[in-house]
């Protein structure tokens, strides 16, 4: 779950562009300043890495992990690298 203090948001969109899993988007309504604060997408892969919370210059985002509904965060999206030496050993 992501809580956003909408009146603090200045609309820099750093959270949206820097999200590693692209889980945020602009919301439809305007806040007091006339900018569109971010919101979570309908189908998102948010893994609660808390990067948006740490990078928000106006401290407007709070990330609260809810563990039951979500899979655990993966360290990397790349497939594991198999070294050449271990392959050679298997062939022998």
């Amino acid at each position: 779950m992501i809580l956003i203090n909408e009146d603090w948001c200045k609309g820099c969109q750093i959270c949206i562009t820097r999200c590693p899993v692209d889980a945020l988007e602009e919301s439809d309504k305007l806040n007091r300043r006339g900018v569109r604060p971010p919101k979570l997408k309908e189908n998102n892969r948010c893994n609660f890495c808390r990067l948006c919370e740490l990078l928000c210059p106006d401290l407007a985002i709070t990330v609260i992990p809810d563990e039951e509904t979500k899979e655990k965060p993966k360290k990397t999206l790349r497939p594991p690298i198999v070294s050449v030496r271990s392959i050679g050993r298997n062939i022998k």
Binding site: L3, D7, W8, K10, G11, C12, I14, E53, C56, P57, D58, L59, I61, T62, V63, I64
Partner: peptide, 26 residues
């Protein structure tokens, strides 16, 4: 969470900041 952190350390009456949009100070 950041919400609890802000309650402890932030003078919330002073918020939001005077900084421009996209500034790194915050």
């Amino acid at each position: 969470t950041a919400g609890e952190l802000n309650k402890k350390y932030l003078r919330e009456g002073m918020w939001p900041t005077i900084f421009c949009n996209g500034c790194g100070n915050g």
